[in-house]
Amino acid sequence: MSLASVTDFFATRAPDIAIQRYATSTATVALAAEALGVVPGQIAKTLSLRLDDEVVLLVARGDARIDNRKYKDTFGQKARMLGLDEVERETGHPVGGVCPFGLARPLRVFCDVSLKAFDEVFPAAGAPDAAVRLTPARLAVLTRAEWVDVAQDVGVAVA
Rank of each mutant, 00 (worst) to 15 (best):
E90G: 03
R69I: 13
E88C: 03
C99W: 01
A104I: 12
N68T: 13
R105P: 02
L139Y: 04
I66V: 15
F101Q: 09
P94G: 06
R89F: 10
A131C: 15
P123A: 09
C99I: 00
A127F: 02
P136M: 04
E146T: 14
V109E: 00
L142Q: 06
F122K: 03
T143V: 11
V98W: 02
Y71L: 01
T143R: 07
R138W: 03
K78L: 09
G76D: 06
D112I: 09
K70R: 14
G76I: 07
N68H: 13
A130F: 04
Q77I: 05
D73Y: 00
R105E: 14
C111T: 15
T135Y: 09
L134F: 11
F101H: 06
P94Q: 10
A137W: 01
E120D: 14
N68C: 00
F101G: 04
E86R: 07
L115Q: 10
E86Y: 10
P136H: 02
A117E: 11
H93A: 10
K78C: 00
V141R: 13
F110Y: 15
D85Y: 05
F75W: 05
M81C: 03
D129R: 07
V87C: 08
K70I: 01
L142N: 07
V87T: 05
V87E: 01
I66K: 05
A125K: 09
L134T: 08
I66W: 09
F75A: 02
V109L: 01
V121G: 03
V132T: 11
L134S: 03
L134C: 12
K116M: 14
F118H: 15
D119G: 14
H93D: 09
E120W: 13
P136Q: 02
A127K: 12
R80E: 12
P128E: 06
P94F: 11
L103I: 13
G97R: 07
V141G: 04
P136W: 02
T74R: 11
A131Y: 03
K72R: 15
L107F: 06
Y71H: 08
R133H: 12
Q77R: 13
R69N: 12
